[in-house]
Nucleic acid binder design. Structure first.
Lengths: 207, 207
DNA sequence: AAGCTTTTGTGAATGAGAACACAAGGTTAA
DNA sequence: TTAACCTTGTGTTCTCATTCACAAAAGCTT
């Protein structure tokens, strides 16, 4: 294995492989081949092997991959082998849904703080977390939180993002329908629900 | 302009261009150049022109694009020039958030029906829509609803998806963390929040 | 109306990612 | 131990997308 630049598309697929491997292990599969994994998640075996090859040799020729070992390897690449604290900003409908969403925890994420600017919400408790005034955002630094989930309106998003970055946040999962301008060492991943919805009709038949 | 196959990446960008044009028009820009739009949304002017060129000539050389006309053109390509009825299945936390989300309506989507299998939720009214028993899903056919938003658990997703397809749904916006197997004339766009979150740590600095 | 400026539209060149195809390495069975 | 059989890892090829670069077309100025 030589050192290539790792395609971003490969990184996007790694969590898919990880989830697939976890589910198959739960199903009793102690070992799996690229073909089995590919069939399960809907990909091509060659793609999976190529993706893995960027990070080294994971499997055994003639046999396949040891499932628990594979899970460990991918987790390590994605840095999911340690827990990650996250802060949630914007406790509207979407924010509340995210707060009680359990899907994050299996990857080792835990929401440790929540902020809003609405006086009616501040002080309320959801899932054991008390909603704080966004003016007190700076407390996240002492808590060593590096990941933020942003679920505020698009008008507030840029300002809040800057504030997050100023308080030590290194990665943002952005649900606001807008572009965030941040220093280039900060990673932003945006989920824009309306944007995805908007292209659905394009693919649908005429009538 | 010759007839090429239209790249999927281009289709993904069209809603971004559309939103950008709408916002700039609201800002008073009656006319805009590919450079202005590119700067606003964070893309390259060449990319924008190339994307448009797949669908014909939209602009005027030396001048740029007439904003309202551009909006109309893109809307037509994306089939957003007519209203689209949608059904929401799964009224959990995420489903409720989607139900009250206003971002869809600007593209002409309206949620016309909502279903759940939880007796405690059936009959409740959210945003003027009464939650119905999922056993009565077949009523969506008479209402001519072709788009579904799926926000059920991953265990139920496949079964519900099949039921939706059997009742006339042509496109699904899927929030469940799983792959859906549907006939290939049905379009599925999946939003998998945990999957996006899971690759955030990868990009973050060591410590 | 001629020349200068602006910006589009698009072939051509470049770059990136996916698929192919097969050698290398390992297992199983006789 | 040898032969038959798997499945990985990866160089090569092919396909698709992005960027480049410039002619064509329109407005503006004198």
């Amino acid at each position: 294995m030589r050192h290539y630049r790792i395609p971003d598309e490969t990184v996007k697929r790694l969590p898919v492989y990880l989830r697939g491997a976890v589910l198959l292990l739960k199903d009793g599969k102690k070992s799996l081949s690229s073909g089995e994994l590919a069939g399960f998640i809907g990909a091509s075996p060659a793609q999976i092997r190529k993706d893995f090859s960027y990070f080294g040799a994971f499997g055994t020729r003639g046999v396949g991959y040891d499932t628990p070992k594979l899970i460990k390897q991918i987790s390590k690449i994605l840095k999911l082998n340690k827990r990650h604290k996250a802060v949630l900003v914007g406790i509207g409908n979407l924010g509340t849904a995210i707060m009680v969403y359990t899907g994050f925890s299996i990857y080792g994420f835990s929401i440790e703080a929540a902020f809003d600017n609405d006086a009616k919400k501040i002080g309320k408790k959801i899932n054991g977390i008390t909603i704080e005034d966004i003016a007190k955002l700076r407390t996240i630094r002492a808590k060593k939180i590096q990941i933020a989930i942003l679920a505020v309106t698009s008008g507030q998003a840029q300002r809040v993002a800057e504030s997050l970055v100023n308080n030590g946040i290194k990665g943002i999962l952005n649900f606001s329908p807008c572009r965030l301008e941040v220093p280039k060492n900060i990673k932003v991943i945006s989920i824009d629900i309306a944007l995805d919805m908007a292209r659905l009709p394009y693919y649908m038949p005429k009538t």
